[in-house]
């Protein structure tokens, strides 16, 4: 089954991104496909390359990057939400790409299920 995932909150402030990551990991382990993970609202902050969490904590951005690397997961950051919050090509973590909101609607159309994680 093809899943689309929408992440509405940034890392660390809220569990949403962690929950979405655990869901994505479990889906891949069960042999499902992740069509796309779309980051919207403050969720765009998951894609910053500038975060430096303490070494004894998980690194949310790196978790996503590793998932993208190992399983070719498409990580898309909303351009408009990103511009508003200062997430641009210059500080975008590798593995993420910036694109339009249409990519979310497309995920809703193309994926079998769209799962939202937010506040």
């Amino acid at each position: 089954m093809k899943f689309g995932i929408l992440v509405n909150e940034g890392p660390y402030n809220h569990q949403a991104s962690d929950s979405a990551y655990q869901f994505a990991k479990a889906a891949l382990e069960k042999g499902h496909e992740i069509f796309r993970v779309f980051f919207y609202y403050d969720g765009v902050n998951n894609a910053t390359s500038l975060g430096q969490p303490p070494s004894d904590d998980r690194n949310v951005t790196k978790n996503w990057q590793k998932l993208a690397e190992d399983h070719k997961v498409d990580l898309v950051v909303c351009v408009a939400a990103g511009l508003r919050r200062g997430i641009v090509e210059g500080n975008l973590a590798p593995g993420f790409r910036i694109s339009g909101l249409g990519q979310l609607i497309e995920a809703g159309i193309q994926a079998d299920r769209l799962v939202t994680f937010g506040d």
């Binding site: 899943f3 655990q22 869901f23 479990a26 889906a27 382990e29 069960k30 499902h32 079998d112 299920r113």
Partner: peptide, 11 residues
Amino acid sequence: VDYGGFVELAA
């Protein structure tokens, strides 16, 4: 359920 169960429910 665990996360795998969450995935199954979604499917």
